[in-house]
Nucleic acid binder design. Structure first.
Lengths: 231, 231
DNA sequence: CCTATTCTGTATCTCCAGATACCGATTTTG
DNA sequence: CAAAATCGGTATCTGGAGATACAGAATAGG
């Protein structure tokens, strides 16, 4: 029944490192449900009883949260192979904290939370890997959030830019940085306004700390960059 | 050998819901190590190879991070029964991202990461609970971080205060709120300066939206509070 | 119970960053 | 290839929040 989705499922991070036959056995034991949605359909709604971890098999969906005053804010965009609800699964929350809605026609795999840790008696070897994967996915989500908190905590725009560039430098080891984000997205990520960010970047270029053209950045004065990274 | 710590261990969140005998068996299988530290000793240092999840059995310790420019910033204070390193355990990180140092004489339990998911063949029932606990602890850490990101993303001080109070209201259901934080801690948490926060709170009091005296707050105009919660 | 210390509210001054508008550069698309 | 749409840099103006200083309230400690 899940055969047609197999090529997608095999590449879902929760199943990394498990062979096709293992996954097949596992799905047998997890007894997942597949939901099919039309564009605009609600996949889960905020406040609804939480029961399953979701996996997008096909299509795209938005994760949104109703703010206190009533406006909906889109928080994430989900695409094929993305997971949602994985953090709620094992917390003590009983309901969905956000709404997931089909942005285009969607097919979703639901893995029952109760089955994941396994009442599968023999706790087969692939099940162990599955749980490790689960732990890894959640942990990495936490690490990303932690990093985000670090950026947001920096007060000045300059400090944010410097930290951002330094992190890239530390990861790649190269003073030449190619960003995947455009200015709007970067400004959004750092939680500042685009013109203010541009202004600050231009100043830094003038001062000879960095150079850039469109999405290509180059660190010129590494020392200065470090010194300014936490103003 | 671990007998003297048992009353502490029983109350560690990772072991919730497991009977004493279960915990004893489990510790047998996890083969943990206990480390004893004097005040000021380094328990783990940033960059060191990651191997164990830590549990504070006795004493207090600080978690600190070296910023890029070299100053150390204390991020958390650990006390008896607190866990550290639980998020790194299952990520793909190979080294400690922060330093943990004994603030007073400390005794620490180290649970080897490799044993946690269990090469314990029969995956005993308490082991399953242990892993569920682990998942819960990490998930809840992620949820807290997520909440923190929400607060930090709000631009205005007023918005932050409103959201903060509303969250408390939603949790307790009461318009009378007793805070555990003092002004400095609250300002720190919201990442604003204390005088600026006080100024804003006073304005809101004047406007008849809230009332407060020291750590006792009262919501007067709930509608107004909601309306302002995301300026 | 009185002193010392910490905590909280308030005023002033300065300035950083947001909002807005606009233009040129770049990319997309028909 | 031309027209349209998106994207990026810059200028101006303004407001909100930070820094600092200080005084009164609350709490702790002897």
């Amino acid at each position: 029944m899940l055969d047609k989705y197999f090529d997608v499922i095999v590449n879902v991070s929760l199943f990394y490192g498990i062979e096709r036959t293992g996954i097949a056995n596992m799905l047998n034991c997890l007894k997942p449900r597949v939901g099919i949605y039309k564009k605009g359909d609600y996949i889960v709604t905020s406040g609804q009883t939480y029961e399953n971890v979701g996996v997008v098999l096909k299509g795209t969906a938005t994760v949104s949260k109703e703010s206190i005053s009533g406006n909906r804010i889109v928080m994430t965009l989900l695409k094929e192979r993305d997971i949602f609800g994985e953090i709620v699964a094992f917390s003590s929350m009983a309901t969905w904290p956000a709404t997931v809605q089909a942005q285009e026609a969607c097919e979703i795999l639901f893995l029952p939370r109760s089955k994941i840790v396994g009442d599968c008696d023999k706790m087969c070897s692939w099940h162990r890997i599955f749980i490790q994967n689960f732990l890894r996915v959640i942990s990495e989500r936490a690490i990303v959030l932690n990093k985000k908190v670090e950026y947001l905590t920096i007060k000045s725009i300059r400090g944010k830019i410097c930290s951002f560039l330094l992190d890239h430098y530390n990861k790649s080891g190269s003073k030449e940085i190619e960003l995947a984000l455009n200015r709007n997205e970067l400004a959004d990520f750092l939680n500042v306004s685009r013109p203010s960010m541009s202004r600050e970047m231009s100043k830094m270029k003038e001062e000879g700390v960095i150079d850039f053209h469109l999405s290509t950045f180059r660190i010129i004065d590494l020392q200065a960059l470090k010194a300014m990274s936490e103003l």
